[in-house]
């Protein structure tokens, strides 16, 4: 074999090896995913029953019971969070895309990036000093505020980007008809972009549903039925945390079920949005 041919073969082998390594890396990444899903589903499903959705947690030592309060609690907490995060996110995103072509807009854009990088536990600490300390007790309201703050960057940035995707000609068409800019923006531009915005909102909500850290010392948790937003409130994630650390096997098992239910809830949220945002006109 002449040297140049040898070199050629060597190059080809190196290439094949490196490219296969990239496949191996991808497969390695899929392994933990499969394992986590396998355990969550197989362990979670054994304790999944009607009681889990309708019954209250049993005291230590008694087996059975459910997490009805935590399921409602999680929904209420993301509801409060959404009530704060969605308007702030959509409105500030609208500002950034429609009027934010200036220094202040650039600053706000940078700060939303900063906010999206802030660890959720830090947001929890801020919600604690802002709400829990003045109120002198833990509350679902404080937890909802923390979740709302966490949603803001995602919703703001998706809103801005989705509105920017709406062609300028559509805006001009509205304005040229003598429709005021605010009506054009809300009824035409936002309406055109709303599917994308809804996806951002969904992402924000489902992330919030999976948050634990910012709830630990805001909404705290509650072993009893409570829908009072000014009182501590149970959530699935905090239950998973507490039950996973507990020495009781029965609770450990319920933690798996709670994890399964949480993941199902998050997927249903995304499914729900997909149905709602389905196009009115069939063809595209």
């Amino acid at each position: 074999m002449n040297p140049s041919k040898f070199f050629h073969v060597k190059r080809k082998i190196t290439s094949a090896v490196m490219m296969s390594l990239s496949l191996v890396a991808t497969l390695i990444a899929v392994i933990p995913l499969i394992l986590i899903f396998y355990y969550t589903i197989s362990k979670g499903i054994t304790y999944l029953n009607i009681d889990f959705f309708v019954a209250m947690p049993k005291p230590v030592g008694e087996s059975g019971g459910g997490m009805a309060n935590a399921i409602v609690g999680t929904l209420m907490l993301i509801g409060i969070g959404g009530a704060i995060g969605i308007p702030v996110g959509v409105m500030s995103g609208t500002y950034l895309s429609e009027f934010g072509n200036n220094k202040f807009g650039a600053t706000v854009r940078f700060l939303t990036d900063v906010l999206s990088g802030v660890p959720s536990i830090v947001v929890g600490v801020v919600a604690y000093t802002l709400v829990v300390v003045p109120m002198k007790h833990f509350s679902a309201f404080a937890g909802g505020i923390a979740l709302g703050i966490l949603m803001i960057p995602t919703i703001t940035r998706t809103t801005e980007e989705m509105i920017k995707l709406v062609p300028h000609s559509i805006r001009e068409a509205g304005l040229a008809l003598g429709i005021p800019k605010w009506k054009t923006t809300i009824l035409i531009v936002l309406k055109t972009a709303w599917k994308g915005i809804a996806t951002g909102i969904l992402l924000g909500l489902s992330r919030a549903a999976g948050e634990t850290a910012p709830l630990l010392f805001t909404a705290l948790g509650n072993r009893f039925w409570s829908t009072n937003v000014m009182q501590p409130m149970a959530s699935l994630t905090v239950y998973i945390y507490d039950y996973a650390k507990s020495p009781f096997e029965d609770w450990n098992n319920q933690a798996w079920t709670a994890a399964l239910v949480l993941i199902i809830m998050i997927s249903m949220l995304s499914l729900l949005f997909r149905i709602i945002t389905r196009s009115k006109f069939k063809t595209k």
């Binding site: 062609p167 000609s169 559509i170 001009e172 068409a173 055109t192």
Partner: peptide, 8 residues
């Protein structure tokens, strides 16, 4: 306008 721009 130059290009037709109906509201989609």
């Amino acid at each position: 306008f130059q290009k037709p721009n109906p509201f989609p």
